[in-house]
Design a binder for these strands. Structure first.
Lengths: 230, 230
DNA sequence: TGTACATCAGTGAACGCGCGTTCACTGATGTAC
DNA sequence: TGTACATCAGTGAACGCGCGTTCACTGATGTAC
């Protein structure tokens, strides 16, 4: 019967989810390097070998968590952008930036998993790529839309000749946008994630208290660097 | 005899150095979380308990590595700045920025130790602070010097009222500099380290090849954000 | 200068722990006739 | 609808491994008289 077959599959999906949930929670205390199948199994009330019915190895579980992380972050940014009026580019940029920061601050360990120092000995497989680019795709789209609408002032600093080939990869995200603007976008991108890294990894401890406000201001400055009108 | 007493102490200093050297090298393969006293001892040709004559615990060894890392990075940045003509502020900024990047690229695992995701379960003690601020002290000094020399254009974007108190901590590094400029400096700081994080942690793999040139351009754009004349 | 004592470096065994993964197995759930 | 068989989930024991840290010890190096 299809119905009962689905019943078993449903349990399987639920337990798979429970495993990743517990694993995610354990990231907080142990970090990615210390994620342990046995600990997850223990918390599930299962014998450790039972986990292997769901994930063939520790690295596969880690991969699942990483993909989930990218997708959650990507979805948050996409959602933030779509709730903005499409023609208000500064608003969209700020919304997307805050979405990145908000997600990172509420999920610091998952953020560390996707944007922190690499897990030693772990090699991310190819299938993480699709999930990996969702957030920057949104950021690229905002600037590309702004450019098409004539809302981007070109920077005074031209792109150096030698970087023409390097900009290639980013034209996939931002077609029609000139190289000089591509580089302001890449710079803005590093500012955004640089800030979030600093905040999540504790570099602002004892220095900045109202981090959301400071971040907001910094992202407005960054919008200026990109030539987005205030 | 003082001479022979010094002999024993010299051996001690040498072995302590050897331990940290080996530990540093092992960071590369294992990451900070996987750093193991037993492995270091094995590589030293010592029995594992002998390490305890030199470091009372694993965390103390880690602390030594972190302090060394901050100092090496700080020294590199200081050195880069002092070789520049003091009045050429853009040159100084670029030199300092490249010094950070160069050091990080040649010592990626030590960089990860000081600017990457925190080591789970490790709490940095107070005595890391002095070493920790050497690099940003240089960056602050460059902008403060430029400001005093009248070489900094104030940004169009004023600092929001609510951030006055937040800027306090940075006035220690950059006295006399107005808040609006403080925030361009903090933003530039996050851009610099954000870039280096991205590069060292592999985010630019398969996208940017000539990273030094792209970084240089990005840092010139960032100088613009800070109001430093090109 | 020579001897008695104190300090220090390194040894080797041990404690108690957790880990990833394999394997033969039991019993329950689903499938085909 | 009922039975025989196949698939699947979970068990429990085991393999072989590495870890941080403690402790009583030996022997060498340094110190004080």
């Amino acid at each position: 019967m299809t119905a009962s077959r689905t019943a078993r599959e449903r349990v399987r999906a639920e337990l798979t989810r429970e495993i990743t949930d517990i694993a995610r929670r354990r990231l907080a205390t142990e970090g990615a390097g210390g994620l342990s199948l046995r600990a997850v199994a223990r918390e599930m009330g299962m014998v450790s070998s039972a986990i292997y019915r769901y994930f063939p190895s520790r690295d596969d579980l880690l991969t699942a968590l990483i993909i989930d992380g990218y997708n959650a972050l990507g979805a948050a940014v996409e959602q933030a952008d779509t709730t903005c009026p499409p023609g208000e580019f500064l608003t969209r940029w700020l919304a997307a930036a805050h979405a990145v920061r908000d997600w990172a601050v509420t999920h610091p360990h998952e953020y560390a998993l996707v944007y922190g120092s690499p897990v030693p000995g772990y090699q991310a497989p190819e299938d993480t790529i699709a999930a990996r680019v969702r957030d920057v795709t949104v950021l690229g789209r905002i600037l590309a839309d702004a450019w098409r609408a004539g809302a981007v002032r070109e920077p005074a600093l031209e792109a150096p000749e030698g970087l023409t080939a390097e900009a290639e990869a980013f034209h996939a995200l931002m077609p029609d946008v000139p190289d000089s603007v591509i580089w302001t976008a890449v710079t803005a991108w590093t500012t955004l994630y640089g800030w979030v890294n600093f905040e999540v990894f504790g570099q602002f401890n004892n220095t900045i208290e109202d981090r959301k406000a400071a971040f907001d201001h910094s992202m407005r400055l960054t919008a200026g660097t990109m030539g987005l009108a205030q």
